[in-house]
């Protein structure tokens, strides 16, 4: 970890001004990604701007039944908030399936969205990585890529977006509120993370002088059956090999609305619209679930070590949909 300067931002305006003054600076909220990667020399901020004093706390229900969540709400607070547990159980479960108690106590809502990949070649400055160093190549594609993406990859990058929380946000439908020099703007969460393409170092749509100030969840589905299933090697405290978040509203066994998103297998939080479309109007039974899984993985492109992830993701989808049906009131 190389030396850096430190400043506390006491207003959104100062936070943005700090960033503009020093383009190589970085915001810190929870610190769980930034400090981890700074110690590895993967991130090299010249200045760290502490935004914890900004008024970005709080969870409030809006008039249109949406839920607005401050960027600095920690993962732990969010998972235990009554409105989340009641109306967005998928979000609570996804968060609690991620990381550890300690990390969830530190990590924030916006920080979780902004977290970086766990690709070991990205985390090793001696390896070739187009995401870390554009144009340097990708050591993962021909290397040990068991943990890498089967969806959304490119010839430049196959790094997985590691978040569990984002799987739920993708399924629920979420709007991000960003703050920049021109004030606030909104962006659909579905448009926020970018596919790697030929520019894997460009991970999201946040401007250099912007920060996420809040996220707003779409109105909850009611009645709702929901499941988050995370498959991994050890039983806890591990990133997903494959995870599936599913929400179903049922009417007499028939699927009214369906939401499905995947984690651990894709380069960004992965909503499965085609699979959802196949489910709507069908009887909530294994045949439909299997077809949905087929559709979700139709474009999968496994690498040398991770073909099993396609199987695993299919299984996660089918079981998550079944569990969502079983959990439906």
């Amino acid at each position: 970890m190389k030396p850096f300067a430190f400043s506390r931002a006491d207003s959104l305006e100062t936070a943005v001004e700090y960033r503009q003054a020093e383009p190589n600076s970085a915001f810190v909220a929870g610190g769980t990604t930034l400090l981890d990667l700074t110690k590895l020399d993967v991130m090299r901020p010249s200045r760290v701007i502490d935004i914890n004093a900004l008024p970005l706390e709080g969870i409030e229900r809006l008039g249109d039944d949406r839920l607005r969540i401050g960027a600095l709400v920690t993962n732990a607070e969010l998972a235990r908030h009554p409105a989340v547990r009641e109306d967005y159980p998928l979000l609570a479960r996804a968060i609690l399936a991620g990381a550890s108690t300690q990390v969830r106590n530190m990590a924030t809502t916006a920080g979780n969205i902004m977290q970086r990949t766990r690709c070991p070649y990205f985390r090793d400055v001696a390896a070739a990585c187009n995401k870390r160093q554009p144009g340097s190549g990708c050591d993962a594609i021909g290397g040990i890529n068991r943990m890498h993406a089967v969806l959304g990859g490119s010839e430049a990058c196959v790094a997985v977006h590691p978040s569990d929380m984002c799987v739920a946000l993708a399924a629920i439908g979420t709007t991000l509120t960003l703050h920049g020099p021109q004030g606030e703007r909104e962006i659909d969460f579905a448009d926020f993370h970018r596919l790697p393409g030929t520019t894997p170092h460009l991970e999201h749509m946040l401007g250099d002088d912007e920060l996420i100030v809040a996220i707003t969840l779409d109105p909850p589905l009611r009645p709702l059956g929901t499941a988050y299933l995370k498959l991994r090697d050890r039983a806890s405290y591990e990133f997903a090999l494959a995870s599936a978040g599913a929400m179903l509203s049922l009417d007499d066994g028939m699927i009214g609305e369906a939401r499905l998103a995947l984690g651990g297998v894709a380069t960004r939080p992965w909503r499965c619209h085609e699979a959802e479309a196949l489910l709507v109007g069908r009887r909530a039974e294994e045949a439909a679930f299997t077809q949905a899984a087929d559709a979700a993985l139709a474009e999968a492109q496994p690498l040398s070590h991770n073909a099993f992830k396609v199987v695993l993701a299919r299984q996660a989808i089918v079981r998550a949909l079944r569990d969502a049906r079983e959990g439906h009131p």
Binding site: P120, Y121, D124, G142, G143, D233, R234, A235, S236, F239
Partner: peptide, 29 residues
């Protein structure tokens, strides 16, 4: 079930020298 040091066979570099990617059992296991 879990533990394996992963050396990249192309260059014999060890790629999971940390306690997240080298998985030891946790309480839940």
């Amino acid at each position: 079930l879990l533990e394996r040091l992963e050396y990249d066979p192309r260059d014999a570099r060890l790629i999971n020298a940390n306690l997240a990617d080298y998985r030891v059992p946790v309480h839940a296991d």
